[in-house]
Design a protein around this nucleic acid. Structure first.
Lengths: 365, 365
DNA sequence: GTGAAAGCGCTAACAA
DNA sequence: TTGTTAGCGCTTTCAC
């Protein structure tokens, strides 16, 4: 534990203190010069140093020069921690996501990081590992270390989320809404995306779709399922649901089963699943889209390079991150929450979908 | 700016202050109860509250109860910022990477985040956008907000890095070493990976390889190039170098050109490039590995699901992040730096490589 | 075992 | 314009 750096001068500044001043061992930030030191060296008060460092107020040119020189010489850099305490803000925002392996959140992270960075803010990230209880602890803590929070919490029960939301403002929600609250929310209209995919497939004559379901608990999967069922009921096609998952291997593992349902088109939970399935299908000697069609969701970067390129619904992942920053920034400045926005996925028709095969290809081998 | 919550009692605690105490508008962390408030409510001193909250020292059971009750009632949560200032540590570490879009760094991020999280530390991330100047500013600032820094700086000139490294300790370097310094470094032995790939290809009879080069400035590309050239010289095979890039589209764009070199095997900078090229090759009607072989690098998750599955060199990206945490933690506790480690890639032979084709397949269409 | 008080490094109101 | 001083919210000696 102990760092052992007892040194660095036992009493600098504060010469009026009655007893020798206590100095702690570990130095928080690497750089060690403090504002007092600079003030001493420059022969001015700490307030003046502060003024110079912040370019605030107007200081006599000569003093400015002296302070700058001292700061330079001492390699002084104001302590962000001390400033945070004094100012009541940290110039940091937090992002909490269930799973950093998810390309969706990776891009949100990128967008948020870039946007916040441009505004001179830092980003604290934490992964909740899909663990709801841990998540609230994490959220509260992260929030207190920062000025605002972007939270992607696909699993937390609504009541819990609602209760939490108060202590978390400024807060922006991703892919969740709290009905009746004024917590801004940015989400993807998965249902709309699914409807586009379905329409596209029906247009090709498909009448039996199999859905490779994502994680049960995730709202984004629930949205898709609901949209699919509604469409099946409304449009009168057959829908088979197959539990699957969210990753390559899940899709790969379920290829055979998907085929065996007799469906003529596969609607995968996302692109990774679709890709895994595609791979499995290849291995089974099945030709896409001649024998069966398949769609993804998300349009992650490689989706247009698969063989055949994947028909999918694109969502503006990066933009979500940037917009999240925009909302947060507004909130942090006391502006009103504004309307929630739901990004509409855009259908990208590529080559993994095609007309329904003439004869049954699966029933009689 | 102003939040407008002027309230929350103008003078709690500090009743000995001669003039009315000043209260700031913005409240830093959402939760608002302070230690003084809790102390007042519990009828004890702030010191005692502190002791109870930290489970330190031994406090009379009755007082503990009173404090806990008060804290509970007030929904009190100690301010991390204030603690950071008082303790001289932030329980946060920083990660700076050139590019968050790079799967390599995404995984490092995950590993680091997970490991740090388990140890009760938070993670600050920043992207330097390959911008060397900005990077040093960022690094210093991030470092001061945290207790240690993990830095991936593939481009910074060595001198600059060396100069910087002092103000950055505890510091762990990724894929960079500072010769003669004691800054711990974790890196991937790209050269070794390349040598394995080359040996594998030579074993199949290939005598003309084309390398799809990554970004010029990146050391990881330079390592590969150097290893390739050395091998070409030593083993007497022909090596063609083709400028390419690091992304899918780069690989895709260069497929035709790669083919035109007449090489019988393609060594791609990484998996994404290989996948892009594979896609381009498919479109050109070229069969892999019958007509030409191709290798990737990294073994990113989808590499085993491409068609055909990609022969590549796997590197422990996640482990890099975890180990980085381990090193940082050691450093933060004043332990010595230890030896640098270079992770050896492991060759994964899959189906994108095969024997050299019998006849020239490209020369006469 | 508990409280008083000094201190972490900075900012800002106020007075000079 | 500049310095003095109180304060941000917490921890930790030191004395009782």
């Amino acid at each position: 534990m102990s760092v052992g750096t007892g040194g660095r001068g036992l009493d600098d500044g504060d010469q009026q203190s009655p007893r020798p001043t206590r100095r702690r061992g570990g130095r928080p930030g690497g750089g060690r010069a403090t504002i007092s030191r600079v003030a001493d060296v420059a022969g001015v008060s700490r307030a003046t140093v502060s003024r110079v460092m912040n370019g605030t107020s107007t200081v006599a040119p000569e003093l400015v020069a002296r302070v700058r020189a001292a700061a330079e010489a001492l390699d002084y850099e104001p302590s962000p921690v001390a400033r945070s305490l004094a100012l009541g803000r940290t110039s940091t925002v937090s992002l909490i996501v269930p799973d950093l392996a998810n390309p969706m959140f990776q891009d949100v992270l990128r967008g948020l990081s870039a946007a916040a960075g441009e505004a001179g803010h830092r980003l604290l990230v934490a992964e909740s590992n899909e663990n709801v209880e841990e998540e609230s602890i994490l959220a509260v803590e992260a929030r207190r270390r920062s000025d605002g929070l972007v939270l992607a919490s696909p699993r937390a029960p609504e009541a819990e989320l609602r209760a939490l939301s108060e202590r978390l403002t400024p807060l922006v929600l991703l892919n969740r809404e709290i009905p009746g609250s004024n917590v801004p929310s940015l989400s993807v209209d998965y249902a709309a995306g699914i409807r586009e995919i379905v329409a596209h497939l029906l247009g090709y004559g498909h009448r039996h779709l199999v859905y490779l379901a994502g994680p049960d608990a995730s709202t984004s999967n629930q949205d898709r399922v609901a949209a699919l069922r509604a469409a099946a009921a409304a449009d009168g096609f057959k829908l088979t649901e197959l539990p699957c998952g969210a990753m390559f291997e899940d899709g790969h593992a379920v290829a055979r089963a998907a085929l065996d349902t007799g469906a003529t088109a596969i609607v995968a939970y996302n692109d990774m699943v679709a890709f895994g399935t595609l791979s499995g299908l290849h291995e089974l000697g099945v030709s896409v889209p001649r024998d069966i069609s398949i769609t993804g969701f998300d349009d992650i970067p490689f989706a247009r390079y698969t063989t055949p390129p994947l028909t999918t619904a694109s969502i503006p992942r990066n933009e979500l991150g940037r917009q999240a920053w925009g909302r947060l920034w507004a909130l942090m400045n006391g502006e009103p929450a504004g309307h929630n926005v739901r990004f509409q996925p855009r259908l990208l028709v590529r080559d993994s979908t095609g007309p329904v095969p003439e004869a049954g290809r699966q029933e009689e081998p």
